[in-house]
Amino acid sequence: MDSVLSVDRGGPAQPLLLAKNLRKHFPIPGGLLGRATRVVRAVDDLTLSVAKGETLGVVGESGCGKSTVARLLMRLIKPDRGTMILDGDPVDEPHGITVNELRRHVQMVFQDSYASLNPRLTIVETLAFAPKAHGLPHAEARGRSRDLLAKVGLEPDTFADRYPHELSGGQRQRVNIARALALRPRLVILDEAVSALDKSVEAQVLNMLVDLKDEFGLTYVFISHDLNVVQYLSDRVLVMYLGKIVEIGDVEAIYGKPQHPYTRALLSARPTMDPRRRTQEAPIQGDPPNPIDPPSGCRFRTRCPFAESVCAGTEPVLADTGKQSVACLMYVPGSGHSKAA
């Protein structure tokens, strides 16, 4: 069942996954005759690349579109526009690979460990489902499932024939991780995969994720609202605000020298034990605006302490500032912002 795609094709320098101008607006039903007149701008013209072997952290407040990005990258939902390229192959295009082939190589772990498991299936049945759906014989699929259980630290003889409700949250999430690995993917998207776990269990699962990544040569997109966990795990970090990327760069740059006012506010608001790390930055004010009618120009301007009139008229685009890319007019020379060079 392994296609040629399993093998690294473009070499280490070619991004594993490239997404260009992804957009997803959810229609809100309720207009005349149930026709949607307004939309939730969940993801707006988002471009990102995931390098082979890296862990790309994705942070942002709840509702900013992180899960929508994950679903778009897996093509669980169809983007309104935008293109995706998996290791050189365009997805869902005439000369590219199909959505099903993409899903073989990109897998996902969801936040809710219980809702992600079919309560009527035993653990081994859940794990064997995908390989069987891809044509692996029953016995082989079960054998592979048991091996996977061992890989995620669950004794196969004990757990294979149990039902999800007989497992703890941490054990269930290990099963979900095993399921994501069952098709031997190259990229695993972890959407708040450890967020619901107790701190001690979370640490164990995180360590396991690190080990699995090495063992199977995986690439991770790690979505979380927990900035500390993202810092611990990620090579690069992407900060989202209302469906857009506001800052992206190496983890050291983002955490050490955040540039976008939103990133700075996020980082200063996080709980820290270290008094030296407490910055003077004003914590972020209020709730994010409604993604149905995001503010014009810079979407962060309603909460930004540096907002000026120019921010309402001009939409900042991501611009390289050396170690990271930032979407803020303060970093665009000649933008008209008083702090711009």
């Binding site: 399993s6 082989e140 592979r144 091996d147 996977l148 890989k151 031997r184």
Partner: peptide, 17 residues
């Protein structure tokens, strides 16, 4: 960068149980 060609059953030794 590691080769992503994985074989999860390879290390099992006993083969399919």
């Amino acid at each position: 960068i590691q080769s992503p060609s994985l074989d999860l059953t390879a290390g099992a030794g006993t083969g399919v149980r």
